[in-house]
């Protein structure tokens, strides 16, 4: 038998060397791989192409759905840097930075002008905010005759009749339930789950659909499957832009930010720092905001955006008046059990 079969080790070693070629080749080029949100070509249009033109460093965008937290941990654990950096939510960034030995590279770009201009709430040693995502209420103007003015209105089915959808996740739905129950925006966190579930119990029969993906929420509004649907502002805006009779309630918008983070240990960390410094520029963020509907984090950016577009962004002055910043650290601590409780509640 021995005569016929090369040993397993030979096969694996030989095969691995052969198969790993692309990764080895890539490491030698001046190139970074960036996971982005994948909204059309927005990322490359706003940042990638201009960065390559300015520095000669190539940028390869990768679209990753969902929260990329698991993939990033895998890559860092295995020291296989399929990606060098990523757009992540502030919550994911905080969690990645805090878990174990930390999964993110310190940014250390303190002297960059973009960094200095970035408001405190959009930055951490491992994270530089790029855009603001607001959870808002989208509604069909052909069905909803009284425009809702608060989450309390959303929860008041007598005042505003219509089919409703909500997100199948404790994140957002907890906040909405508490605000709907009359909790003031500045006293929202820490979340009172018991109170939230009490409000949701009463609401449950009125929710026709619990959506799971952003595109689904857009489709629900576009097709008229439901009349009121809380979703991310970019998603609601997509429904508006497609010509559907949809409007957005900006009152009590729930803010989260998304931004740049570098995978700990990537050999291209310095190139990534160059990229982040480059991306923290009002004129670049303006392009991104226009394409995605998400608000720029740099205050100056909003001024260089066409007013017609600017007023659809979360950071537009009129839209941010009653906005509430979500406490991401609260969620980092409570998400696991909150998810379990939410699952239990929703299938029950």
């Amino acid at each position: 038998m021995v005569r016929y079969s090369p040993t397993r080790r030979h096969l694996v070693a030989g095969g691995a060397a052969l198969l790993a070629m692309p990764a080895i080749l890539r490491a030698q080029a001046r190139k970074i791989v960036v996971r982005d949100l994948g909204i059309g070509t927005s990322f490359m249009d706003a940042y990638g192409k201009a960065f390559t033109a300015a520095t000669g460093i190539e940028v390869q965008p990768v679209t990753g759905a969902n929260d990329p937290i698991a993939l990033i941990k895998q890559m860092v654990d295995a020291k296989t840097y399929t990606w060098d950096m990523s757009i992540v939510s502030r919550q994911v960034a905080n969690q990645l930075a805090a878990d174990g030995a930390g999964y993110l590279e310190p940014l250390k770009i303190d002297d960059a002008p973009g960094w200095k201009a970035l408001p405190e709430m959009f930055r951490s040693p491992f994270y530089a905010g790029n855009d603001v995502v607001a959870t808002v209420l989208g509604y069909r103007t052909d069905k909803v005759k009284t425009p809702p003015k608060s989450w309390a209105d959303f929860f008041d089915t007598a005042k505003i009749p219509g089919r409703r959808a909500m997100r199948r996740s404790p994140v957002d739905s907890m906040e909405q339930a508490l605000l709907g129950d009359g909790v003031a925006g500045d006293r929202l966190f820490p979340l009172d789950f018991d109170r939230a579930y009490k409000r949701l119990d009463a609401m449950k029969k009125n929710v026709a659909v619990w959506w799971t993906s952003g595109a689904q929420s857009t489709q629900l509004l576009q097709s008229g499957e439901v009349d009121l649907c809380p979703t991310w502002n970019g998603r609601a805006q997509a429904a508006v832009n497609s010509g559907a009779p949809v409007a957005i309630m900006w009152d009590q918008a729930l803010w989260q930010s998304e931004g740049w983070a570098i995978l700990k240990g990537t050999p291209n960390a310095d190139l990534c720092r160059e990229f982040i410094k480059f991306a923290l520029a009002p004129e670049r963020q303006a392009i991104f905001a226009k394409a995605t509907g998400y608000g720029p984090t740099l205050p100056a950016a909003i001024n260089s955006i066409d007013p017609a577009v600017a007023k659809t962004l979360p950071t537009f002055p009129a839209n941010r008046a009653s906005a509430i910043l979500v406490d991401v650290d609260f969620w980092t601590k409570n998400r696991d059990l909150a998810a379990e409780r939410f699952n239990k509640w929703i299938v029950g």
């Binding site: 691995a16 790993a20 698991a70 890559m75 295995a78 399929t82």
Partner: peptide, 19 residues
């Protein structure tokens, strides 16, 4: 798929056609 990622990472197969 998830379990394969670890093996791929060790063999350098992540992001390859072979993988």
């Amino acid at each position: 798929a998830v379990a394969l990622f670890y093996v791929y990472a060790r063999l350098g197969l992540v992001g390859t056609i072979t993988g």
